[in-house]
Design a protein around this nucleic acid. Sequence first.
DNA 1: CACCATGTTCCTTG
DNA 2: CCAAGGAACATGGT
Length: 286
Amino acid sequence: MPELPEVEVLVRHLAPLLTGRTVRGIEVRRAKVVAPTSVPQFRQALVGAQFRNLFRRGKYLVFELSSPHAPGSLTLVGHLGMTGRLFVARRAQPRPKHAAVIFDLGQTELVFEDTRYFGRLTFDTAPLARLGPEPLNAEFTANHLQQALKRSAQPIKTRLLDQSLLAGVGNIYASEALYRARLSPRRKSRSLTGPEVHALWRAIRDVLAQAITWGSTVPLHFGRSNDDTGDRLFYFGRSPGSSERHYTERLRVYDCAGRRCPRCGTAIRRIVQNGRSTFYCPACQR
DNA sequence: CACCATGTTCCTTG
DNA sequence: CCAAGGAACATGGT
């Protein structure tokens, strides 16, 4: 689920549900998720702490908590990996099979669930320091992008996935941004002209901002409904049935191999670059 | 059984 | 030293 727009939407959803809440208890079912901190250390540090602030950096969630005993604040860093989810539910709800960490918040609980367990919830802030600029902030300029690309012989698609170049673009939005900029994913980064870099810069920003506006383009059932049916999952930006169509309309090329290009009708192609799928239109992306 | 999957890190190779 | 590429991580869907 999680590239920059999905994490942004999730953070906006969670912030008001968490801010001001005190952690009454913690259950860690997968120690790996909180490593290298041990489970007892993790619990000791957080039980009694209060959520003060939550924000996003790249694909990471950053939780700031105040600790009752120690002065200063605690920073907890979350990453959803490929299949991670975070949601707040009433405490009596049945938990998903792969619930890894559960925070008891009193009436509710915060659940970190991750089928593949690639996600993390740790005190290690080092990964944040390695991130490039936020693509939607003013610090990310066309000039920054040009400088970052001008020496690389790597294909542009591969380069966009480097989080130290810019933070938050993943496999889906890399393909989508290149489609909108009409650039072939196979182009060597350093071969892009000034106007092409500028078009790509604009496409990256547009694609991410639009995805945030839509709520999310990818299924993200990170929460549960508030009504009394209890078990029904709450979907953000996509529910089973009619709005599934919205989802496919948002993504123009990703996972669309064989379908016609919305611009020119040519069949969208799937290729593999560095072991990852890339989707593009061979006719209008040069 | 085969291949595919929204990500990051570690290790090897050049 | 650096850039680039591949495997590993773990589980499930098709």
